[in-house]
Design a protein around this nucleic acid. Structure first.
Length: 991
RNA sequence: GCUCAAGUGGCGGAAUUGGUAGACGCGCUGGAUUCAAAAUCCAGUUCUUUCGGGAGUGUGGGUUCGAUUCCCACCUUGAGUACCA
């Protein structure tokens, strides 16, 4: 019987589906284990071999855990709201739901071919109303919550209201908007309903506010910070501008510290943790108030400039202040004399896009306001400047400039000839600022003089607080996340507007289903696509969505036109898998208590500051509300590396008339008669050689008149060739290339060959359609089988590492599977003997068990594939066909190559699936050795080996080694100074 | 600029409480089988060599009996982040 992967794989995939082999139960005596993949966005392009890498790794681990006696939850689903489907809808008028459905079908088909042990009965789709009903409900919960800093958790908004009623907001310690008015309980009672709502909105965890947003005109929507890369949109690379809009936001900043602290408790990759730490950007320092120096007129409050600084210890080094050009005080403090200059500067900065400002950090610019501030300690006057190196959006939008201690302040001071007082003992600041904190002593600083950084910092804050000039503060870079998108294909908000104030629809009326629209584009008056919907109003009498015609703002109100961003649905989906069919709750308490959280989460590192931060935020919120039992959703996370494509290049000639040569009729002819040529890779090493090769060829074939040879210049143009046209030896199938539909231009091209073949150049690049290096897993499954694909993807290299794909390598793992198969067969017949295994056979088995188990636990899947190969090579050499060996071997292989393992298992006479068979137990006794092949080194270099009994003492070993003829030959009569012997390891002779 | 990760044959990679560098596979070379090819099997494959050896894990130093592994400096590549006060 031949190893027929197509037959076997189909058979077992059907078996698993029919028997629901991988359906997880929410009740079990076994310990639980939850293995999760980041669910895919089902794009129209389908999967390429890079996509399943992480899924294969997690599937191996899930299958392994089943063998180890765990009740494994290993679900899969689709992140099915998103931009591409919508843009396709705009172009074609196809409903995004339809294309999404089609794409999901393709994905499912492709995934099924790879033999994953997913429990599909728990599938989720974020665009499914039965799912987004709960996304909407979580949104409502966020709206109805505020963050109490005293209890350090989210609480119901009703607790806030009762405090307001009792004592106003004087004693409230909450995370809220900056511009909060203070009020008493009486004030609160007197406020109108609208006023109350406005105030509460400033405390809610999701809130509506006019914010500066990243507006992308090309996409017609706002983008979150993590959706912008280098100043352009992540999708499509369109420019992004700043714009003020009324938007929903999430008060993620409330959780900044807990998001930071939580990182200590989870086993996630350090670079990812660093990235989140960086994004949250905690900095500890102080707020300091500077009073603007101006003639005091009656009853006028003095103007105060507040700054945040991490270095209050350097306060005596302040020689000026800088405000962001957008700072609200700029216009108020600028003197008449400076007005023109300042206004011109403010205008100039406003015109520059965010991107220009980012790109240009070298040019120093600014303007003097003419105003002065009073140094809080020394009372001296310091100039107030404006400059675009100060960002309006961070801290207070103003800085106290300490030019001797901060390079930016230093550069600014030098540029504008502002004094640079030195407050560091024995430090030269004639060339650059001195930013080192540790070990520097502060001088010229009154009460801080003579102190080092740490003490000075503490004392400075103490004095600021004592004198009422400031206070210690921790600042975070993390901004509240904009949650509105001007898109169609996303979750609708469960929100209607009454008197301009947002009202939540009662959760029992959810889901609010996405309405039908004629067009998926924004409306002509600039409203989001939902503005096109005709039935998009809320009837509070019937609690239903009704026609817009009925809006009377009495009982029928307009609904929110924005939709939620892509990350809404993915911020809690891992909880839904625990109880995916529940219609009463997003998951039952029993299911949540049983599954707790994800034990192993595998996905790409590109989600570091997006999905993975938002999901942690929502989980913490849900935890605060007692809706989930743990406040981190994933215990361990692994970032799989990208699989890169190995592009193939052919080298086309381009012919020019050399510069300086007159172009006349004759040399145009010269060029016209030169055909398109392709030169094989190894015929040239440089551009010059390339030209020579081509010219020689042309002269040889009489295609170029020797008289014109010097007139013509020939250069090479590398062109991507489809990788499927190239074999393992980098040889191009020339005929197939010429006939390829994309190469119509080269149908008659000539190929200059080497040794009768055309060799392509290779380069590793990202896998992409445009580079013709995409490899489809379906084709691999067809030709080599899913088991080969799975093994090969693991064999490529360490899971976390980026690595290039080369299809040629797959023959190695494929022939391994054939060899494995052969162990169980003799001349076409299944033949396994019940004889006692030999010592060597047992040794091979047990060292394989040991290594494979260690490897899986360490996620070192590439090395266990090698281990399997070694085991099969050894057992083949031993001609082993013993059941005692081959039965456990099938189980060992089954997580990696489940189809062949199932088939062999059934051939071995078992009726049940191999999926939950106990993992073989490693026994040390089979590996015990009596001898060791010692490496004999001289000065650390191994020169020869010697097999010695492990029972020999050090002295015996030394004696035997020293007497050995090869030792004497190495020493050539020298007397060794020292002999190092580590029994069981090495012998090293020094001298 | 800052932070992090990584540099090992023609290629993917293996080996680190410091102890035989190059496992396993691809590719390549030679052979067997075949009319031939594919497939399969066998042998070889870091470089160098006067065939005794010698050198060798990005570069230069250091610690050590012994360093791919630890320390210092530098170079290169990749990733993230970027006027964060």
């Amino acid at each position: 019987m031949q190893y027929n992967h197509q037959e076997i794989e189909k058979k077992w995939q059907n078996f698993w589906a029919k028997n629901q082999t991988f359906k997880a139960l929410n009740k079990s005596n076994k310990p639980k284990y939850y293995v999760l993949d980041m669910f895919p966005y089902p794009s129209g392009a389908g999967l390429h071999v890079g996509h399943p890498l992480g899924y294969i790794a997690s599937d191996i681990y899930a299958r392994y855990k089943r063998h180890k006696g765990f009740n494994v939850l290993h679900p899969q689903g689709y992140d099915s709201f998103g931009l591409p489907a919508e843009q396709y809808a705009i172009q074609t008028g196809q409903h995004p739901a339809k294309t999404t459905e089609e794409n999901i079908k393709t994905y499912r088909k492709q995934l099924d071919k790879i033999g994953f042990s997913f429990d599909w009965s728990r599938e989720v789709r974020t665009s499914n109303p039965a799912y987004y009903k709960w996304t909407q409900s979580i949104f409502i919960q966020l709206f109805n919550s505020w963050y109490n800093k005293d209890t350090d958790k989210a609480e119901d908004i009703s607790t806030l209201v009762s405090i307001f009623e009792k004592e106003g907001n004087i004693n409230i310690n909450a995370v809220c908007d900056e511009d909060i008015i203070s009020f008493s309980s009486k004030d609160w009672a007197d406020f109108s309903s609208t006023k109350k709502q406005e105030i509460l909105l400033q405390y809610r965890l999701t809130f509506l506010s006019d914010t500066e947003v990243n507006w992308c005109p090309a996409l017609g929507t706002v983008l979150a910070n993590d959706e912008i890369v280098n100043g352009v949109s992540e999708r499509g690379g369109h420019p992004v501008i700043r714009k003020k809009m009324t938007q929903w936001s999430m008060r993620i900043s409330a959780y900044a510290q807990r998001l930071l602290d939580g990182l200590q408790t989870i086993d996630w990759p350090q670079p990812l943790k660093d990235s989140q730490t960086n994004w949250i950007g905690r900095s500890q320092g102080a707020m300091v108030s500077f009073q603007v120096d101006e003639p005091t007129t009656n009853n006028q409050e003095p103007k105060i400039i507040e700054v945040f600084t991490t270095r209050p210890d350097t306060i005596y080094g302040v020689s000026f202040m800088t405000l962001a050009p957008e700072h609200e005080l700029v216009s108020k403090i600028t003197t008449e004399a400076q007005k023109a200059e300042v206004e011109a500067y403010v205008e100039a900065t406003a015109k520059r896009s965010e991107r220009d400002r980012m790109a240009d950090v070298k040019t120093i610019s600014g303007a003097f306001t003419g105003a002065y501030a009073i140094h809080p300690f020394s009372g001296e006057k310091v100039q107030i400047w404006i400059g675009d190196y100060v960002l309006a959006g961070y801290g207070t939008g103003a800085v106290m400039a300490v030019p001797c201690g901060d390079q930016r302040d230093y550069d600014f001071a030098k540029h504008f000839n502002i004094p640079i007082p030195n407050i560091f003992e024995g430090v030269d600041i004639s060339e650059a600022a001195h930013a080192d904190k540790e070990g520097t002593v502060i001088v010229n600083s009154d009460f801080l003089s003579g102190l080092k950084y740490k003490k000075a910092l503490k004392l400075a804050i103490y004095e600021l607080e004592k004198r009422g000039l400031g206070y210690g503060k921790i600042n975070y870079r993390l901004r509240d996340a904009v949650f509105s998108r001007q898109r169609y294909w996303g979750e609708p908000f469960p929100v209607y507007y009454k008197d301009g104030m947002p009202q939540m629809i009662d959760a029992k009326h959810l889901p609010i289903v996405l309405p039908e629209v004629e067009k998926y584009l924004p409306t002509e008056d600039g409203k989001p696509p939902l503005g096109n919907a005709e039935v998009w109003a809320w009837n509070t009498a019937t609690d239903t969505v009704v026609s817009n015609d009925l809006i009377d703002n009495q009982t029928v109100f307009p609904l929110e036109l924005n939709t939620m961003p892509g990350w809404a649905g993915s911020s809690w989906y891992f909880n839904r898998y625990m109880d995916a069919d529940n219609t009463n709750q997003f998951a039952s308490k029993e299911a949540l208590d049983y599954w707790q959280n994800v034990d192993l989460y595998i996905g790409g590192s590109e989600h570091a500051t997006g999905h993975l931060l938002y999901a942690r935020f929502w989980q913490k919120f849900l935890f605060d509300k007692n809706m989930v039992p743990v406040d981190e959703f994933a215990k361990k996370l692994i970032n799989q590396g990208m699989i890169l494509g190995t592009s193939a290049f052919v080298y086309k000639t381009s012919v020019f008339v050399k510069n300086g040569c007159a172009i006349d009729k004759s040399n145009e002819d010269v060029i016209e008669h030169i055909p398109t040529l392709f030169v094989s890779k190894n015929l040239f090493n440089s551009d010059d050689e390339f030209e020579t090769v081509v010219k020689n060829y042309l002269l040889d074939k009489k295609l170029l008149d020797p008289n014109f040879a010097d007139l013509v210049m020939i250069t090479k143009t590398p062109i991507h060739a489809d990788v499927s046209l190239v074999n393992a030896s980098d040889e191009l199938d020339v005929e197939a290339f010429k006939n390829h539909p994309l190469n119509a231009d080269y149908k008659n091209a000539t190929f200059i060959l080497e040794d009768g073949v055309y060799k392509v150049g290779r380069e590793v690049e990202k896998m992409s359609k445009s580079k013709y290096n995409v490899v489809n897993p379906d084709a691999i499954c067809e030709e080599y089988g899913a088991d080969s694909l799975r093994l090969f993807e693991m064999f490529l290299g360490p899971l976390e590492q980026a690595k290039p794909w080369k299809t040629s390598g797959i023959s190695g793992v494929h022939s391994f599977l054939k060899k494995l198969w052969k162990l169980y067969f003799k001349e076409e017949e299944f033949a396994v003997s019940n004889d006692e295994p030999t010592k060597e056979e047992l040794k091979t088995l047990h060292k394989t068990i040991k290594k494979v188990e260690e490897d899986i636990e360490n996620f070192s899947f590439n090395t266990s594939v090698s281990t399997f190969m070694i085991a099969v090579n050894e057992l083949s050499a031993l001609k082993c066909n013993k059941r005692t060996i081959l039965e456990p071997l099938a189980v060992l292989v089954s997580p990696y190559a489940p189809h062949i393992a199932e088939e062999l298992w059934s051939q071995l006479g078992h009726k049940e699936s191999i999926a939950t068979v106990t993992f073989p137990k490693f026994e040390e006794k089979y590996l015990v050795e009596s001898t060791k092949v010692y490496p004999i080194s001289f000065n650390g270099k191994m020169r020869f080996t010697l097999e010695l009994s492990l029972e020999l003492s050090k002295d015996d070993i030394e004696k035997t080694v020293m007497e050995h003829e090869k030792t004497q030959a190495q020493l050539q009569g020298r007397i060794p100074k020292k002999v190092i012997i580590v029994p069981g390891k090495i012998v090293n002779i020094v001298g």
